[in-house]
Design a protein around this nucleic acid. Structure first.
Lengths: 216, 216
DNA sequence: TAGATTGTTAATCGATTAACAATC
DNA sequence: TAGATTGTTAATCGATTAACAATC
């Protein structure tokens, strides 16, 4: 039970380290912070500090044991053990998330999916089944998912949000491009695909033109 | 042509303001930074600074003209005018992004989609059509998209990335949970759904238990 | 021992917040 | 004029980086 505080920024970099470790050949027994920093274009002291905050397996000269380090990082990210979540809205984005294979690695489990459309009810959605919206309160109260993902259209997002928070779901991950009102104490995270892509293109535009794209 | 630097953090908050402004009744002619800060649970000075960096329309006592402010924020986010992008991988996530309606507001336009599977080729994908991977180099060289989105499985992500960068695409938005190697000067942004959800649940776990979830 | 790597202490940098002056 | 709001200057806070000591 370490009480070490892990900074927000560090937490956001941990997944990068996991990806990198996963990409190494299976027989790579050891790895150093310097090596990780080089490959990920990060400062080596930063990486060392990040790793030190989640693992104490670092040894001078040898570095970290690859498998052990990956384990420690995963533990830090999903420190509470298995996490259950539900998805509301089985459109394209809901389907994509329901079938996303990467959740298992972080010990995240989809336990139910919901959709407004009666024609969708009963159909499979990843590892679970689509339920009617009416069923949301009972299922959430019984199974107590930690997170509710909202992938309904913007117009009905607040309604979906109210249903989830009303059923005691303590955290919301909102994919609809609207501002949601949540009760005091509810954790709200917004994902805005358009904004992310816009920021990326803006970043590109403000960079010095690295290579002549118009070559003619 | 203002040369004001807009900080990274500010840029990430701008979409929140747009969402909030969109959620206001159509007849809301004016809005103040204080009001925005209250509704979004942000510090009012922070909001005022953010707004000041993208707009000069703020007037004491009255605040900002809602429509004008929204315009200014959008301009700052997508400062270069229309941005074209392509998607590689028409699985669930690729489909979801191809049909995502929010891109238009940020002046982002899907110009082509690609998939490995011959059965997918020729089918519609949002506003465009699915092309074979073979067609990627020619199409990208001709149309010069600013961003390539990678939504293929982890195993083939590097291949897709090489195809895009090889065809001169200057920025990559990677949804595959792998570390990608890109040429010097290429802008790479990683999206890791599992990591995002893991972070959210972790955040929840480290919060003081705000309400008794087990009520019985 | 020599060399590579870790981890820590201090310095720098950037972002947030507080206090205040300016303006309609 | 009085009050609300903007915008700016200074203070605080947190994160990154540099310098260095510790260790295998």
């Amino acid at each position: 039970m370490q009480e070490v505080h892990i900074s927000k920024q560090t937490l956001q970099r941990l997944p990068l380290y996991i990806n990198y470790l996963n990409s190494l050949p299976a027989d790579t027994s050891h790895v150093s912070a310097t090596q990780i920093a080089d490959c990920l274009s990060l400062n080596d002291v930063q990486v060392r500090k990040d790793l030190a905050s989640v693992s104490s397996g670092g040894r001078p000269k040898t570095g970290y044991i690859t498998r052990q380090l990956a384990q420690d990082i995963r533990k830090a990210l999903a420190c509470t053990g298995p996490v259950r979540f539900v998805i509301v809205g089985m459109g394209n984005m809901g389907q994509a998330l329901a079938h996303y294979s990467g959740f298992a690695e972080y010990n995240l489990h989809l336990i139910a999916a919901f959709d407004h459309d009666p024609a969708m009810v009963g159909k499979p959605a990843g590892s679970t089944t689509v339920h009617a919206m009416d069923a949301l309160p009972d299922i959430c109260r019984q199974q107590m998912p930690a997170v509710g993902i909202i992938t309904v259209p913007a117009a009905t997002a607040q309604h979906a949000c109210d249903a989830l928070t009303g059923a005691g779901v303590p955290a919301i991950w909102n994919f609809a491009p609207v501002h949601l009102a949540v009760p005091e104490g509810t954790l709200l995270e917004n994902e805005n695909m358009a904004a992310s892509l816009g920021l990326l293109s803006r970043h590109l535009a403000t960079m010095a033109p690295q290579k002549n794209r118009a070559s003619g």
